[in-house]
Design a protein around this nucleic acid. Structure first.
Length: 781
DNA sequence: ATGCCTCGAGTTCA
DNA sequence: CTCGAGGCAT
């Protein structure tokens, strides 16, 4: 970089940092992430160090934070509130420790370590044990008087406990909003139209800045004390840790994660420990803070311009980062759902490189107002999946255009349509769309469906392109040659042909394995088979229910849709979707071919005798969803007519004679006149009779020990996988659910159980550890 | 009609 | 995991 370029860069950095300061402190609307801000400051500091001639007394590196906004009275801090230097790596922490060791000429250093809350730094002034004034940090020397607002925070004592406090005591600490409080607040705000807060930090800052303390009082704010400022007329202990203990004695909240550690190893171990616990903490933190514990040492170390030399903030890798959104593409899913996703310039977030993130649906894109060319903020929240949180509107380049859903499917060109009132847009191409076909096969082969190991999306695509795979039944007639041909094409297409293949050596082991995996999948269960078909609304759980209640593929595949409503948790929508799927000749043909090519269902059994209760004409009439025909009317009809045929043959006046109001009789007659309705009624009645005939006597089925129990699994089990545990519990009659509610019988918690365990404790639901589960399984094996 | 509670579907990276 | 939406009890 030349001298003039350096000067330009320095000016640019100063301008951007000042702008960010203004937004952060005065507007409570940060437009860049903390990590990006830190990076700017560090770059500027480095340049200024390297080019002392370009230093400037007005540079933001010489100030701490921005000037107060002026809406509150100003308060000069008796002792300045300083910020901390940052460390982003173990090396920087080691440098920090080394600097202290060298200056103090001491080997064994004792530090006080504590989490660094993501909130708002404030100072509380107590005189004669009474809270008299509270102020924000402001620029470090002068802050804003927010005493009235701070008084509304219940954990801040108005009067200190005990009587051994100094006459004047300034307590430094952080006002924050706990995550659960933040969530609860926003939930209510969305429901009842209050102010929705962007994140806990902004929530805390904004709440403390209210002109009306009554508004602040509504906000769920908390506080932790972490240090002291001015002290007069009394003395405090000579170590930081003892000072914290004293503050706690006086009734001030101090984080119980604050502790004393020894040397560099102690610091790094603390960092690792808090980092591991981070997601489970009740509040957001962005790092940990280390302070030399003895005050004599602190005094000896002193300060550099804007921070103490005896303390440092060790930051966690950012979980939020800004990056450039290069384009918005769309994906076509198994059901034809067209979902937009963001393609971004690679960025490190929470330790992994993120390049893509889902944008869910068109409404979501519109809500975020995100466009190609935007700078966006990406987050990896508690889980792994990255998410675009926010657009930095201030950094939008000119000439961007709002994104819109393409009118045609990018894969097959069919029209993209949206159902009335629905959120998702779908490709109308159905199975003639190659993308939907590929996804359908991928789903069929997936682990929870037919479990064909080794059949990935890339292979399926290639098989479909070359015409070897038109539908899932073709899987069962693939030959070794088909697979080798497919692989050759795929490698050519992607330019991934291995050198060994070019040299004439064609590996076939993988193909043998795949053929074997396909063959193994021929023996399957009814639940897996039904799930694998990919019927709309039929996921794993509904497929299991269908299998359990009907027990036989031949029965299921010829059942008219109203009969499916006899299964608990299947209503009109789902029943119709199943019926619609089965009504299509093409789908029946696929099932036929699957069976012809060797797929065998191994757990066929008689229908569940509990079905008996709903297998009558009255229930059928309700299930058919005939306009105006309620349960009461259906019962009247069922007792007045011998069977469905009799009902069908009845003239309107007979219907009325059965006790129906004229309006209902007419609606029913009109419905019966439609040919399709009449035949559905007859088909359903026949199916009902057949199903009835197949029902076994209501006998005492071997009820499992967990019959009627709903179990939720969470965390990692060591002795078995989650799926295995799930199967075993279900074999004993339990129902396994994905989330904890008051209906949950008990929760099995493995290692590192998270929110579900917390929820269980909150609801007072029984929790089993792995040992208890194993013991139970062993006992009932 | 309203408010749980579940299920289904789509999704990321190593 | 998170959203949206279906099922069902109230």
């Amino acid at each position: 970089m030349g001298a003039s370029e350096t000067a330009t860069r320095i000016a640019e950095l100063r301008r951007r940092i000042e702008d960010a300061n203004r937004r952060y402190h005065e507007l409570d609307e940060p437009d860049i992430t903390d990590a990006a801000y830190d990076a700017l400051v560090r770059e500027l500091e480095a340049l200024e160090r390297a080019h002392p001639g370009l230093a400037d007394a007005d540079s933001p590196t010489r100030k701490v934070g921005a000037l107060p906004s002026g809406r509150f009275a100003q308060v000069a801090h008796a002792l300045p509130m300083l910020s901390l230097g940052n460390a982003f790596s173990d090396g920087e922490v080691a440098d920090f420790v080394r600097r202290i060791r060298e200056r103090l000429e001491r080997e064994d250093l004792v530090f006080s370590a504590e989490p660094k809350l993501d909130g708002l730094a404030i100072s509380l002034r107590y005189e004669d044990g009474a809270f008299v004034q509270g102020a924000t940090r402001g620029d470090g020397a002068t802050g804003e008087d927010v005493t009235a607002n701070l008084r509304t925070i219940s954990v801040i004592p108005h009067v200190l406990d005990g009587d051994d406090w100094p006459k004047v005591l300034e307590v430094r600490g952080e006002v924050y909003m706990a995550r659960a409080d933040f969530e609860r607040w926003n939930e209510r705000a969305r429901l009842h139209g209050g102010k929705v807060l962007a994140n806990p930090r902004n929530g805390a800052a904004g709440s403390l800045r209210q002109q009306d303390p009554a508004v602040t009082a509504q906000r769920p704010l908390s506080f932790f004390a972490y240090g002291i400022g001015q002290v007069e007329g009394g003395s405090l202990p000579e170590t930081h840790s003892a000072t914290l203990a004293r503050l706690r004695d006086w009734g001030l909240p101090v984080s119980d994660l604050a502790t004393v550690v020894h040397g560099l190893d102690g610091l790094l171990a603390y960092y690792a420990r808090i980092g591991a616990a981070r997601d489970g903490l009740a509040f957001d933190i962005d790092g940990v803070v280390y302070k030399l514990d003895d005050l004599a040492g602190q005094r000896e170390m002193g300060f550099v311009s804007r921070a103490p030399r005896w303390a440092i903030a060790h930051k966690f890798p950012a979980q939020e980062q800004a990056t450039l959104l290069e384009s918005i593409e769309v994906n076509v899913g198994r059901t034809g759902a067209v979902t937009p996703w963001a393609l971004m310039r690679p960025v490190q977030v929470g330790g992994v490189t993120v390049t893509r993130a889902t944008l869910h649906n068109a409404d979501h894109v519109a809500r975020l107002d995100v466009r190609a060319g935007d700078t966006v903020i990406v987050r990896r929240a508690g889980d792994v999946i990255p998410e675009v949180v926010q657009v930095v509107h201030a950094q939008r380049p000119p000439g961007t255009v709002p994104w819109s859903m393409p009118a045609a499917c990018p894969v097959c060109g069919a029209e993209v349509v949206r159902e009335e009132g629905a959120a998702v847009w779908r490709c109308s191409g159905g199975l003639s769309c190659p993308a939907q076909r590929v996804q359908a096969v991928f789903h069929f082969a997936s682990r929870r469906a037919m479990d064909i190991d080794g059949l990935g999306e890339r292979y399926i695509e290639s098989l479909a392109e070359s015409g070897h795979l038109r539908d899932v039944s073709d899987l069962y007639r693939l030959t070794l040659d088909d697979l080798l041909d497919m692989k050759r094409r795929a490698d050519e297409r992607d330019g991934t042909t291995p050198e060994t293949v070019k040299a004439g050596k064609v590996p076939t082991k993988w193909a043998d394995n795949l053929i074997e995996a396909i063959d193994r999948s021929r023996g399957t269960t009814l639940a897996r088979f039904l799930f694998a078909l990919g019927i709309e609304h039929v996921g794993e759980s509904t497929a299991k229910a269908l299998a359990q209640w009907f027990g036989d593929l031949d029965l299921v595949r010829h059942l008219p849709w109203p009969l499916f409503k006899r299964v608990p948790d299947i209503g009109g929508e789902v029943a119709r979707a199943i019926g619609h799927f089965l009504d299509q000749a093409g789908n029946q043909a696929v099932i036929e071919r699957l069976l012809a090519r060797g797929v065998r269902i191994r757990d066929t059994h008689a229908p569940n005798p509990l079905l008996r209760d709903g297998l009558d004409l009255a229930t059928l009439l309700v299930d058919l969803e005939i306009p105006k025909v309620t349960a009461v009317r259906a019962a009247q009809l069922a007792s007045a007519f011998a069977d469905a045929q009799a009902l069908l043959d009845a003239p309107v006046q007979d219907l009325a004679a059965a006790g129906l109001p004229a309006e209902t009789a007419e609606a029913l007659a009109g419905w019966l006149e439609v040919e399709a309705n009449a035949s559905l009624l007859l088909r359903s009645a026949r199916a009902l009779a057949e199903l009835r005939a197949r029902l076994p006597e209501r006998g005492e089925q071997a009820a499992g020990p967990l019959e009627g129990k709903t179990v939720v699994l969470t965390g990692t089990l060591s002795a078995m996988g989650r799926d295995e545990a799930k199967d075993k519990l279900e074999a004993l009659g339990a129902k396994t659910a994905g989330s904890v509610s008051k209906k949950t019988s008990f929760v099995v918690a493995g290692e590192a159980a998270g929110s579900k365990l917390a929820k269980a404790e909150e609801l007072g639901i029984e929790v089993w550890d792995e040992a208890r589960l194993l013991a139970f399984l062993a006992q009932h094996a």
